[in-house]
Amino acid sequence: MISSLSGGAHRLFSIVLPSFALSLGACSIPRDPSGTMDRVEQSGTLRLGVIEGAEMNEASRRTLARVLDRTGSRPETQRGDSEVVLARLKKGEIDLVYGELAMDSPWSREVAFSAPQGLLAKAPKSEPVPRFAVMNGENGWLMLVSEASK
């Protein structure tokens, strides 16, 4: 099919396709549009928000330890009310939030939730369960947290 293309289109394809493939291969996919993972890795600091009253269970501690290990960062923890902490996450002032959050909470549209931490059975959508949350659209960062949760 390529051979039937005109010279210009052929040249375009021969330049665009390899560079596209190279750019896919060179960077890990998915990437973060707001660059959370890059920022954490470069600064060496993970700004962690913990919702007041939530205690980290063993699975969450393990996940957090793996995230810190993979990014080579240290946590800078700040506690607060869920509204305050999640609003700061949404604005990009915090990198990761831990708390007991229900899947049907209105915040599930404003930020992205990780899978429940340390639960074997599927929890009802209305039940607050321990989980992490990241800024919406930070897909690479969410992948890293999810892989660390395994």
């Binding site: 998915p30 992205a112 897909n139 969410l142």
Partner: peptide
Amino acid sequence: GEHPTVGP
């Protein structure tokens, strides 16, 4: 400017 979340 909605950022779509496509997770794992």
